[in-house]
Design a protein around this nucleic acid. Structure first.
Length: 502
RNA sequence: GGUUCCGUGGCCGAGGGGUUAGGCACUGGUCUGCAAAACCAUUUACAGCGGUUCGAAUCCGCUCGGAACCUCCA
């Protein structure tokens, strides 16, 4: 079996993945800016790297996963002169900035948990690393690759190009083209008088009197620039050189390009050796984004309360849906895709449900071991999750045939499958199949009793051929989200989008 | 204007010079009082035009269409 290959944005190609210090892997992912609720697009990126982390772990690597919380420093416009987003939100809502940060951080964690996106090993905040950021700015200044103007510090891209070089290597741009682009009237360059060159960017910004998030620094009161936090925190926790850096495509330029330049300027090393970028989630062909005004939030999906949606879908359904496109492709969000995901998930859930009850005999008429390899191969090939899902379902189809006595599986294969399949689904794909523990056991028991009573009443109606009543009971239960299913063994019920309760 | 990417059957989406992706939906069948679920069967696609090749959806060129980045955004 081939080893793991990952697409590296630096080379634009898939490369064999070789960690610097096996079995350890350092993974850094740009986290959310906590001035708003995370939307589905954000979730997609964090899901991508959740699965990468899970897969690396499965392969036996010991992953240190650092995903930051940006709680300061991202400005409103490109002039390096706008208002801090968190500060703005705080002013609008008359809150202390850290109240804004706290609120959306908690909300972010809640969404991550529901989607079963595991917490990172370290979740550092920008405000918690002001000192490290200042130190990094000082080092860049010492190198002569930055300059101070009026209490602000700017990265000197031209000097960097002359002495170090490689600005634009990640995003595939040339410095003069950036200026040409600027000249084409596509962006306004007002308020950039302090910069020596339009491509220069702020490392530290002087705080205006009304700016509420501010810290003392060698250059006066101010706040860190847009990109320095990730350089500072990745260097602190993973080293000047580490394995993988991930984030959304939209961060490739300028954020990651600047981050890389800062690393090179400060430590002489570019930080990560592999840059991975996860593509955008689109809605009706357009990128989902806060500024596009078409953002969908996880709560819209979970509640079904959205014009695009016919009903509510569970977090796992959403997770599975987002797993249906390769991370480097855009994924168009549609209700049909959610519906399809819901059905497939039910299929997986069912297969895991009957797996323990199967009996093995004779010789398998399906090569389970090469099937398992094919799942691994898919994930090893630049984390091809959708292909792995497709192959998973193919395997489940054979399993259904076994369950229906239309195919055979040897005892040996069955035993292997029993230890492999649930682990693969839950540990690698991160699909929570087990019904979540009820928050109120006595309420659940009461529900069980009531359902038992209803099913009994309906069956009495059926025996007396009162099908009108029987169907009415079934239909009206369905309307409140409870599905009845008749079989030879009797009638079972389940809540929409969860496993069978019986 | 610059850079890059994409265009696959009713829909979503893998793959990618010669062999079935998978799923959803549809249709027929089994099962059922009827449904639902499940199982079986079935549907045969790669934007258009030209080129390379024994052979192209897959490589090259052009055309058309779409998207992303160049500005805070996952």
């Amino acid at each position: 079996m081939k080893g793991l290959r990952l697409h590296n944005s630096l080379s634009g190609d898939k490369e064999p993945f070789e960690p610097l210090h096996p079995p350890f892997v350092g993974l850094y992912v740009c986290g959310p800016t906590v001035y708003n609720d995370v939307h589905l697009g954000n979730c997609r990126t964090f899901l991508t790297f959740d699965i990468l982390r899970r897969w690396l772990t499965w392969l036996g690597y010991r992953v240190r996963y650092v995903r930051n919380i940006t709680d300061v420093g991202h400005l409103e416009n490109d002039a390096d002169d706008g208002e801090d987003k968190i500060g703005k939100k705080a002013r609008l809502e008359q809150l202390e900035p850290m109240e804004v940060v706290q609120r959306y951080t908690v909300g972010f964690h809640e969404v991550m948990q529901r989607l079963n996106i595991l917490p990172p090993s370290i979740e550092p905040t920008a405000t918690g690393h002001i000192i490290e950021q200042i130190q990094m700015v000082e080092k860049i200044l010492e190198q002569g690759l930055a300059y101070v103007v009026n209490g602000s510090v700017y990265f000197d891209v031209q000097a960097f190009e002359k002495r170090v070089g490689g600005y634009g290597a990640l995003s595939g741009r040339k410095l003069d083209e950036l200026i040409a682009g600027a000249g084409a009237g596509r962006r306004t360059l007002e308020g950039q008088d302090e910069k020596r060159h339009p491509a220069d960017f702020a490392l530290w910004k002087k705080a205006s009197p009304q700016h509420i998030m501010r810290w003392p620094s060698p250059w006066g009161e101010g706040f860190p620039g847009w990109h320095i936090e990730c350089s500072a925190m990745s260097t602190k926790y993973l080293g000047a050189e580490f394995d993988i850096h991930g984030g959304g495509f939209d961060l490739k330029f300028p954020h990651h390009e600047c981050e890389r330049a800062q690393n090179l300027a400060c430590t002489g090393q570019g930080g990560p050796r592999y840059w991975m970028h996860s593509n955008m989630l689109t809605v009706q062909g357009k990128r989902m984004g806060k500024s596009e005004g078409n953002a969908l939030w996880p709560r819209d999906i979970f509640s079904g309360d959205h014009p695009l949606l016919p009903r509510a879908y569970s977090p796992m359904t959403l997770r599975y849906m987002m797993m249906q496109a390769h991370y480097r492709s855009t994924l168009d969000f549609t209700p049909d895709a959610l519906e399809a995901a819901d059905k497939n998930l039910a299929k997986i859930r069912e297969a895991l449900g009957f797996l323990p009850h199967l009996t093995g005999s004779g010789v398998s008429d399906f090569s389970w071991s090469s099937w398992q390899d094919s799942l691994f191969e898919a994930l090893n090939d630049d984390l091809n999750v959708p292909l792995a899902c497709a192959r998973l379902l193919e395997g489940l189809k054979h399993l259904h045939q076994v369950a229906h006595k239309q195919a055979h599986i040897s005892e040996e294969d069955l035993e292997a499958l029993r230890s492999f399949l649930p682990r693969f689904v839950e540990e690698v794909l991160g699909l929570q199949i087990q019904a979540t523990a009820p928050s109120d056991a006595s309420a659940l028991q009461a529900l069980e009793n009531v359902m038992g009573l209803l099913i009994q009443l309906r069956n009495e109606a059926r025996v007396s051929r009162n099908y009108a009543l029987a169907d009415q009971i079934r239909d009206r239960l369905q309307k409140v989200g409870i599905q009845l299913a008749d079989s030879r063994e009797g009638t079972t019920w389940h809540l929409q989008g969860s496993s069978s309760v019986s």
